[in-house]
Design a binder for these strands. Structure first.
Lengths: 227, 227
DNA sequence: CGCAATATAGATCATTCGATCAAGAGCGAT
DNA sequence: ATCGCTCTTGATCGAATGATCTATATTGCG
């Protein structure tokens, strides 16, 4: 999270230098802080604690957001924004590139985007709360990413039963679960998930008669496939 | 959740008949209600709302649990209890049965145990809160189930790179993610996950040169493998 | 340099939270 | 029946919550 200014003090509340900031900059600082704060303690976190962490007073929050709910919405918007790159659909359907390379490129970039403390936790908090943005995101993911991905796989598949959407969700879930283990459950995880991602994608493709012969341990990994 | 008595009233608070219950029965009723309640609204849910849902007064809760935290611990204990059957380790290592059958039997039973609204959500809530029981459970799962499972797979694997713990977690995560989609995100899911589980297990085994030739669409599914 | 605009702070309100307590109500023993 | 034990209740406490308001301090502009 970008430190917008040097005015924040540590959470052990010694006095900070008072800083007057341009409104939009202050607003950005508050949203940034709120993202980090709510990711830690959940959306139910107290506005006073958030203010203390930001080094401002609680009442100031309400100068920028009429209600706490409005602030939470801003946090959701910030976190969900640009998390699904608009060019992924076409890149996933670019048949001049092998399907495996497309999959590896997508999941490498996607995992770098979402395997982050703030995103993972706020996504889970908002999911449990039934937030509208959460459902919209998952709908969009299914329609715009995983749907086309299924079509591509069905087109290329050379053996076995035809793939279903449930198979795609299984691939997706197995990969996303790395981030869940890391940031939700705080389990020790490999710092670079691309090896696990590569293996998961290869196992998946192999089952449909695609690429990755059994000895391909030295193949291109997801991290090296980054465009 | 078992309706312990007919005394509960609907949540729209019309007066209920007052019932005097034996202490342990009342306690059980409270824990049952608390499991369902906290699964819905999260651990931060108010004790007054829980009491209203149970058709009792809020103060009565504190006759059975000294603090809310104590009640929450009872909820955790109830939910986490017996969720990892003690005979799974040995059954997973019973080499008189094919590895595939062992895997399918395990994940069928396991998914039936955990793909439930209360479990899934309370597990996620407690995970986000960093509850000790959550870490203990995952430690235990890794050591007692997934560890032996890795050993079995490594023993049987006939091709490809040797399996790692990360591979096992990928299989596990892909399956568990079905429950997450269903109960955390409330997405529409197949009511019987055994087909998806079977395919996931078969893809996994196939990648290590085991069973499931490419045409095995009509094989034994997980639900039929139930012992 | 001085003034107006506004960012900021601290006190404060009403509500809700977990938790306590004395009084009342139900059930079993006699 | 009715007595007594204890389960249950409603009132209530102090702390914490979201939200408001007034007074002060700081900045930018002329």
């Amino acid at each position: 999270m970008a430190e917008t200014s040097g005015a924040e003090h540590s959470e052990t509340g010694e006095r900070a230098v008072r800083r007057r900031l341009p409104p939009d900059e202050r607003r950005r600082q508050i949203v940034d802080g709120a993202v980090a704060f709510f990711a830690d303690v959940g959306i139910e976190g107290a506005t006073r604690d958030l203010a203390r962490r930001l080094g401002i007073t609680q009442s100031l929050l309400f100068n920028y957001f009429a209600t706490k709910e409005e602030l939470v919405e801003a946090v959701y918007a910030r976190v969900y924004l640009d998390r699904l790159s608009p060019d992924w659909p076409e890149r996933l359907q670019d048949r001049s590139t092998p399907l495996r390379a497309r999959l590896l490129a997508f999941y490498t970039e996607y995992s770098e985007l979402i395997f982050q403390y703030e995103w993972m936790r706020i996504f889970m908090f908002s999911g449990l709360a039934g937030a509208a943005l959460n459902r919209r995101y998952l709908d969009h993911l299914g329609k715009v990413i995983l749907g086309p991905l299924l079509a591509e796989l069905a087109e290329s598949a050379r053996s076995g039963p035809p793939p279903t959407m449930e198979d795609i969700w299984n691939l997706h879930g197995g990969i996303v679960y790395i981030g869940i283990r890391q940031h939700i459950y705080r389990m020790p995880c490999p710092d670079d998930p691309s090896v696990a991602i590569t293996h998961a994608v290869d196992r998946f493709l192999y089952a449909f008669g695609l690429e990755a012969p059994s000895g391909a341990a030295a193949g291109v990994t997801a991290s090296a496939a980054r465009r």
